[in-house]
């Protein structure tokens, strides 16, 4: 048994590979040299970052990584995805294990400062809300006095809930459950009057888990701000600019009506902003240190923000989330790209 184990042990060590060294110094140079962007993503959150049944990563956060890969390499597939747990995500970025953290992460002051992150652009404005059964006939969360409310344990959701009720001097009974499926089941079985979670999650539950979505309403109050944004490390301004403007390019494209379908024609556009965006008028790429076709490639391969949104979380997806705050500023939302010039 012993010599057998020894040989197997040696073979086993050979099987698990060695130590890999990523980069030292400038992120952009390291990425170019490596030939791929390393992107920290969620371990599985449908619509934002999750592998599909073929093991391909899809989602809004994933598309932001693909956009950056397009800007740098002109090829959206040159991304390596590193799934990260909620606890490990900040360390992974700080330690240089990933180049971008695009993992459904809320932009907060402490993370932006003490944790050494630089948030680039908000790609999704989320917030905590309430869902109730329609036959309760509620119009506002302020009518939830004395209600029993289902909430997931160990999340900021629980804290926000308590804060909101204390601030409004109302009483409530929380039903705290650890697993998401069980929270939903508890709400549907009538153990609680209301369920609270991020509005995007509530919409997903309403669309997919309820027997009839029309029987449930999401109340208009949003009790917390959850701006979700990809982040990069402190202290590398060039990389920060590249990631941030790659995302802005998708928003500018939507505002100007440039889509993956018409981006070829957009090259002949008479609008000077569009010309600068797609590289027909050079300059923007050079400023970023990228190829002049950087934004053209993003729009061509990944699409503009509207396309990304609809495909992953909007009406073309199984989540069917309305644009709401995530519409362009020209349509009453908060999505706004600074000027392309």
């Amino acid at each position: 048994m012993k010599p057998l184990s020894r040989i197997a042990a040696v073979a086993g060590m050979a099987l698990v590979g060695g130590i890999s060294s990523a980069f030292a110094g400038d992120t952009f140079d390291a990425v170019k040299e490596r030939g791929e962007v390393i992107c920290g993503v969620h371990t599985g959150l449908y619509g934002f970052g999750a592998p599909d049944e073929k093991g391909n990563w899809t989602g809004l956060d994933i598309d932001m990584c693909r956009a950056v890969a397009d800007a740098v390499f002109g090829d959206a597939t040159k991304v390596k995805y590193v799934p990260l747990s909620a606890q490990a995500r900040l360390t992974a970025l700080q330690s240089g294990e990933v180049d971008i953290l695009s993992r459904n992460t809320t932009w907060t002051l402490s993370r932006d400062t003490a944790n050494g992150l630089n948030f680039t652009v908000t790609t999704y404005y989320d917030g905590q809300g309430f869902m109730v059964k329609k036959d309760l006939d509620l119009k506002s969360a302020l009518e939830l006095e004395g209600a029993t409310i289902c909430v997931q344990t160990g999340t900021t959701t629980e804290v926000n809930l308590a804060d909101y009720f204390r601030a409004n001097n109302m009483k409530f009974t929380p039903v705290t459950i650890e697993k998401y499926e069980e929270v939903t089941a508890a709400y549907l079985s009538g153990r609680c009057d209301a369920i609270t979670s991020d509005a995007s999650q509530l919409a997903a539950i309403r669309a997919n888990d309820t027997p009839d979505p029309a029987d449930h309403v999401i109340l208009p109050e949003i009790i917390s701000k959850e701006p979700l944004a990809p982040a990069v490390r402190h202290g590398d301004d060039q990389w920060f600019d590249i990631v941030r403007w790659s995302i802005f390019a998708t928003m500018e494209a939507e505002e100007k009506g440039v889509t993956s379908a018409n981006v070829e024609e957009a090259k002949k556009s008479t609008d000077p902003t569009v010309q600068r965006l797609v590289g027909a008028t050079p300059g923007m790429g050079a400023n970023l240190g990228l190829d002049e076709a950087w934004a053209f490639n993003i729009i061509k391969q990944v699409g503009n923000y509207g396309e990304i949104y609809e495909r992953n979380v909007g009406m073309d997806s199984k989540l069917e989330l309305p644009r709401g705050l995530n519409a362009m500023w020209t349509k009453g939302g908060l999505m706004y790209s600074p000027a392309f010039r």
Partner: peptide, 24 residues
């Protein structure tokens, strides 16, 4: 947790040890 949250901070920046090897 240590291996994923603390350990990488002690390594030189950019150096990571293969995750599978860590777990194994």
């Amino acid at each position: 947790f240590m291996a994923s949250v603390m350990f990488p901070l002690f390594l030189p920046e950019g150096m990571t040890i293969d995750k599978l090897l860590r777990a194994q």
